[in-house]
């Protein structure tokens, strides 16, 4: 860990100005991923701008088309967001996704924005002695032909085959959340579906954010599908493990016919994967296990696998069916 200058930001605008003006500056919030990376030697900023004490810790309702939305400050801790009564009632997939991630201690520490911006846990990205295009562009991808059990099955490129690790991001992607971003040229909104990138030939870039952009809030719009939503995660350990695959799903039913459906997948791609083809196939159909399996199959056309990660295809298909049929039956899914 190289020597660091540390500045506690007075307000969001000055934080943005400080980081924008210094290519080797980084924001520090909960620190659960950044401090990890500092120690591993996979990032070496010269300046840390601490935004953890900025007053971005409110959860507020706002008027939105079709009801009341929720604006979540970037510094709201994962545990507080998961326990927030409005989230539990109207966006249960968000609460479930948070509770399926990390540990109680880490959820107290990790922030909403930081969760979305956490980086891959690919073992080669985290091992500075091995080639990795995401960590060091142009060095090659060690996960191709190496430890591939967690590798992506959708949207991978020859340069990077890893997956995005966040659970929260999957739920937010399914429920059409958007992030509020403060940059040098002011505030803008980015839909969650457009925040994270596929790797292409620039796997070093996880998101579309510019250097110095600060996520200040996340906005959760209301919907019937969000109210009837869940998050289903398959993993090795029963707790405290990253997803093998995960599904965020929301349903609006008219009898047993799908009026609206939201599906996003985790653990399968370099970004949370909104399964729009599957959603389109399900809308207007009767919600049956077979229908969901077929819709998922459609979404999985073009999936690429190796011996080590081929299991993800049946696993994500089945987990999608499980999440949707349980939602339809009014059963708890976890």
């Amino acid at each position: 860990m190289r020597e660091l200058e540390y500045v506690r930001a007075d307000d969001a605008a000055s934080a943005v100005a400080l980081v924008s003006g210094e290519p080797e500056a980084r924001f520090l919030a909960g620190g659960t991923n950044l401090v990890d990376h500092l120690k591993l030697g996979i990032t070496a900023p010269r300046l840390l701008v601490d935004v953890s004490r900025l007053p971005l810790d409110a959860v507020e309702e706002y008027d939105a088309p079709g009801g009341t939305g929720l604006r979540i400050g970037a510094n709201v801790r994962n545990s507080d967001l998961a326990a927030h009564p409005a989230v539990r009632a109207s966006w249960p997939a968000v609460s479930r996704a948070l509770l399926a991630g990390a540990s109680g201690q880490i959820r107290h520490q990790a922030t909403t924005a930081g969760n979305l911006l956490q980086r891959t846990r690919c073992v080669y990205f985290q091992d500075a002695t091995t080639p990795c295009n995401k960590r060091e562009p142009g060095t090659g991808c060690s996960a191709v032909g190496g430890y591939a059990r967690y590798n992506a099955v959708l949207g991978a490129s020859p340069d990077c085959v890893t997956v995005h690790p966040s659970d929260l991001a999957v739920a937010l992607t399914a429920l059409d959340a958007q992030v509020v971003v403060l940059g040098v040229s002011g505030e803008r909104r980015i839909p969650m579906t457009g925040l994270h990138r596929l790797p292409g030939d620039r796997p070093d870039l996880d998101t579309v954010l510019e250097h110095g952009d600060l996520i200040t809030a996340v906005e959760l719009p209301p919907s019937a599908a969000a109210r009837r939503s869940t998050y289903q995660k398959a993993r090795d350990r029963a707790s405290y493990a990253f997803a093998l695959v995960s599904v965020a799903a929301g349903l609006e039913l008219d009898g047993d016919v799908v009026r609206d459906v939201r599906i996003a997948w985790g653990g399968v791609a370099h970004r949370p994967w909104r399964a729009t083809r599957a959603e389109d196939a399900l809308r207007g159909q009767q919600l049956t296990e077979e229908a969901v399996l077929a819709a998922a199959e459609l979404e999985l056309e073009g999936a690429t696998t190796t011996d080590q990660n081929a299991y993800k295809v049946p696993m994500i298909r089945n987990t999608t069916a499980l999440a949707c049929t349980r939602l339809a039956a009014g059963e708890v899914s976890r």
Partner: peptide
């Protein structure tokens, strides 16, 4: 008042 890791935390913060 809350349980918290101390390893992934910079003291200065």
């Amino acid at each position: 008042g809350r349980r918290h890791l101390t390893c992934l935390a910079l003291a200065v913060s």
